[in-house]
Computed example of a mutant assay.
Amino acid sequence: MLKDHAKLMSAFLASGEITGRKKLQKMIYIAKKLSFPFQEKFQFHFYGPYSEELTLRVEELCNMGFISELKEKKGGYFQYRYTVTEEGQGFLKMYETEMPFLKDCLDDMNEQPSRFLELVSTVLYFDNLSREEVEEKIFTLKSKQKYTVEEIDAAYEYIEGLKQKILN
């Protein structure tokens, strides 16, 4: 059980700080689709792939004092910032998790807007379909986001760029 917590903690540590629950969900999903060994199960939800397991695991890590969750009021909504605590760093020393290239990929993802990561994760969620079918799904399921063909092209390019980071 704690090995999965340690893998998630490694992602937080590699990222330094993750701002936003949606961004966190998308970053872990994308990393999982890139073959990093995250075990959380995802299903398609309002904002793309979502894992209740991930939400619960983060809550557990916060309750154990390994992750700090800072809730900030931003206009009409709350935003959450996550960082690893000193206790969390101590915990990670007991569970060495080797995930080469994870930091490079997460750093890159962490610089992207949540809206773009939502698109990237949606493209990856439907990766068993043809590109035309994926576009159709996006235009149908994500119609409120008003994604363009150019943005979808950028998502595919971004995915290829992340894959190259792992191969190099």
Rank of each mutant, 00 (worst) to 15 (best):
Y125N: 07
L70C: 04
D108N: 09
K26I: 14
N168E: 05
L106D: 07
K74N: 10
G75N: 12
Y47E: 06
L56H: 09
L13F: 01
I30Q: 10
Y156K: 02
Y125P: 06
L2V: 12
M9R: 06
K73L: 14
N128K: 07
K7Q: 09
G65A: 07
L106I: 15
I152C: 08
E136H: 02
F139N: 02
P49Y: 12
V84Y: 01
K103M: 08
K165A: 02
L24A: 12
Q164A: 09
L24W: 07
K142L: 15
L124N: 11
E87H: 01
S114Q: 13
T19S: 07
M9E: 06
D104K: 13
H5E: 11
E69R: 15
F38C: 06
E60N: 09
F126K: 05
E40W: 08
I152K: 09
S10G: 04
Y80H: 14
Y47K: 09
E132P: 04
Q112C: 14
S51T: 12
F46P: 00
K144I: 03
I67V: 15
Y29E: 13
L24N: 08
E17H: 03
L119Q: 06
E69I: 12
E96Y: 10
S121R: 04
P113S: 13
L117E: 08
H45V: 00
A11H: 01
Y82T: 01
S114G: 15
L141V: 03
L117H: 08
S15A: 15
A154P: 00
Y50A: 07
E157W: 01
V84L: 04
Y29W: 14
K22M: 11
P100V: 03
I159F: 03
V58D: 10
E136I: 00
I166L: 07
K32I: 08
V120L: 11
F44Y: 15
Y95C: 00
F66V: 03
K23L: 08
M9Q: 06
I28N: 04
L117G: 07
T85V: 04
K73M: 12
T55Y: 15
K32H: 13
Y47D: 08
E157V: 04
Y82V: 02
E132R: 11
F91D: 03
K71N: 15
I18Q: 01
Q43W: 05
Y156R: 03
Q89E: 12
Y80Q: 12
L61S: 06
E53G: 11
K163R: 13
L92W: 01
K165E: 03
E160M: 03
F12T: 07
F78I: 04
V58I: 15
T140S: 08
K163M: 05
P100C: 03
F116G: 06
S10A: 15
S130D: 10
V123E: 07
S114F: 11
L70D: 12
V149H: 11
R57T: 13
T140M: 02
L129Y: 14
L13N: 05
R81P: 00
M27S: 14
E60M: 06
L13H: 01
S68W: 04
F91M: 04
F116P: 05
I30C: 10
Y77G: 01
E136T: 01
F46L: 13
E86M: 06
Q39F: 05
K163W: 00
L102D: 10
K137S: 01
Y47M: 12
Y147P: 05
F101T: 08
D127H: 15
